[in-house]
Simulated assay, not measured.
Amino acid sequence: MTHSLALDVDRIRREAQRTIDAGPVRSAYGPDIERVICVLNNVVAAEVVGWLRCTRQAILAHRSTPTPAGESFKTQADRRMRHAVALADRIVRLGGRPDFDPATLAQRSRTDYSTADDTELRAILEQNLLASRIAVATYRQVADWLGDHDPLSRRLIESVLADERRTAAELTALLGSPAAPAPRTSPE
């Protein structure tokens, strides 16, 4: 026994034409679409603030000669900028507007921009590791929250999360390497 699939192509075409002026398909999200866009914009903010921090660190680390830490900071900065652009593109595809407002970036980022003393490599590495761990925990929650509701955004967040885990592993390795000075001990 064969089952045939009867499609009403004319009805499908009329429906598609009727909704073409509505912009991106948003009906699957219901009222949560604005919340998804807001959450993604907060992740954009975290990535932009991280890009700013890592770019500054890469430039300062290469003052005299390239170092493994400086190369790592440059790689981290490049990843973060790619993430921010990909997330902003996703926001546009969802019908939203990416929020790059400098006045609110730090507040929305959930990570700290503060910079450690430029001469204290270990402190800089620890600061970046802390930011990466915050991002890993945050992005994991975002991916779980998105679930099957928005698989495209979830996969994008999971991709960013995988890079954050890679960054955390790189920073941990740098902290254990001879190039990272041992922590200073304070006199008691």
Rank of each mutant, 00 (worst) to 15 (best):
S4L: 13
G30H: 07
L152F: 07
D10T: 08
R14T: 10
R155G: 04
R133E: 15
L5A: 09
A28S: 10
T67P: 05
A131H: 07
A28C: 05
L121M: 14
Q76K: 04
A103D: 13
T119H: 14
D10K: 14
S186M: 08
R93S: 12
T115A: 13
Q141E: 13
D163R: 00
R56H: 13
D112S: 14
V49C: 02
L174S: 03
H83V: 01
P181K: 05
N42A: 07
V136W: 09
A162W: 00
R122D: 06
P68A: 07
V142R: 05
D21N: 11
G147E: 07
E188G: 13
T185S: 11
R154V: 03
L40K: 03
A84G: 05
L121Q: 11
R90V: 06
N41G: 08
R63S: 12
S186T: 09
G96A: 07
D8K: 05
W51Q: 04
D118N: 10
N128R: 03
R18A: 15
L130A: 15
R165L: 05
S109P: 00
Q107I: 05
D144C: 03
A123L: 08
A116T: 02
A182T: 12
R110N: 11
M1W: 03
L94C: 06
T2P: 13
E71G: 03
E34D: 15
H62G: 01
F73S: 00
T172D: 15
G147N: 11
I134K: 12
A77H: 05
R110M: 10
S27W: 12
P183T: 06
A180Q: 02
P178Y: 01
V36L: 11
L146D: 01
D78H: 08
I134M: 06
E34K: 10
I91V: 15
A103R: 14
L152W: 01
E15T: 03
R140H: 11
